[in-house]
Amino acid sequence: MVFVISLQGGMAVGKTTLAKTIEKKYKNIHVLYEDPYPIVQKRKELKLDIHKKEGFVHNQRLFIQAEIERFKNLPEGIVLLDRGPEDIEFYTLHLPKSIGENWDIEMELNQELRELRRCRSNLILYLDAPVEVLRERKAKDETRSRKSFDHHLRLHHQEKSWYKQLNDTMILDASFKTKQAVEESVVDILHKKNVL
C-alpha cells in the first residue's frame, strides 16, 4: 500500500528544506523531489514557446505524462512528494490566465487531465507565507536561481484558494516559524493522522 503526502506552496516557502529534513530523520518515508529539468531541456530541444497555445499544451502534456508515470511507479509505504500531481494540474489550468490568455485547456488536455486527476495525494500539506516573506527568503537563498519566481508570485493567492478546496489539504503557516517549528508541526500532523 502507498500513502502519498505532497508538500505544496509558493517558491522559497521551505518545501525542499522540509523534505530533506524529513528524509534524514525518517528512514521509513520515501522522499521524491521535483525535477522539472529533463522536461525543460526537452522543451528547449523542441523549441516550444509556452506563451503560445500549441507550445504550452505540448509542454504541459509532457509534464502530465511524466507525473502520471512517476505516480504509477511510486514505492510501497509512505511517500513524500516535493510538489505533486496537484501542482501540475494547478499550473496547467491557471498559468495561461496569468499571461493574459483565455485558452480552453480543459478541452485541449481533457484526457490527460482526467488521468492526472486519478493520481491524488492522500494528504496535501500546503506551506503558506505572505509574498514579502517569500521574496525575502528567495533573496537570501543563493543556492537556487528560481528564474520563474516572479511569474509564480502572480498566482500565489489563487494557488492557496485552489488547494483549500481540495480534499485532504492542510494549510500550515510557515511565514515566521523556524525550520524546526515547521518540521514539528508537520510531524505532529502525521502522528495525528496515524501516518507515523
Rank of each mutant, 00 (worst) to 15 (best):
V2R: 15
F3D: 05
F3R: 14
V4P: 00
G10P: 03
A12R: 04
V13Y: 06
K15S: 12
K20R: 15
T21H: 06
T21S: 15
T21M: 15
T21G: 02
I22H: 05
E23Q: 15
K27I: 09
I29W: 05
H30Y: 11
V31K: 12
V31T: 15
L32Q: 02
Y33W: 06
P36E: 08
P36L: 01
Y37H: 11
Y37T: 13
I39M: 10
V40Y: 10
Q41E: 14
Q41H: 13
Q41G: 08
K42D: 08
R43V: 07
R43H: 10
R43C: 03
E45V: 05
E45N: 08
L46Y: 10
L48Q: 09
D49K: 03
D49N: 15
K52D: 13
K53V: 05
E54S: 10
H58M: 14
N59W: 15
R61G: 03
L62W: 02
I64S: 00
I68H: 07
I68R: 08
F71M: 10
P75T: 08
E76L: 13
I78Q: 09
V79T: 07
L80R: 07
G84N: 02
G84F: 04
E86Q: 14
D87T: 15
D87H: 13
F90N: 05
F90E: 00
Y91S: 03
T92E: 01
L93I: 01
L95A: 09
K97Q: 14
K97D: 08
S98N: 06
I99T: 01
I99C: 00
G100L: 09
E101S: 03
E101N: 09
E106T: 01
M107N: 13
N110E: 08
N110D: 11
R114V: 01
L116M: 00
L116V: 01
L116Y: 05
L116P: 01
R117V: 00
R118S: 05
R118Y: 05
C119K: 02
N122V: 00
I124G: 04
L125S: 08
L127G: 04
D128I: 03
P130G: 04
E132Q: 07
L134P: 00
L134T: 02
E136D: 14
K138H: 03
A139G: 02
K140N: 09
K140H: 01
K140W: 00
E142K: 15
E142S: 11
R144I: 02
S145Q: 11
R146C: 05
K147N: 12
S148Q: 10
F149R: 09
H151R: 13
H152C: 11
L153N: 07
L155E: 05
H157M: 10
Q158R: 14
E159D: 09
S161K: 15
K164D: 06
K164L: 12
Q165H: 12
N167K: 14
T169K: 07
T169P: 03
I171A: 06
A174G: 12
S175F: 04
S175C: 14
K179H: 11
Q180Y: 04
A181I: 07
V182T: 10
E183G: 12
E184A: 10
S185W: 02
V186M: 13
I189D: 02
I189W: 10
K192M: 11
K193Y: 14
N194P: 02
V195N: 11
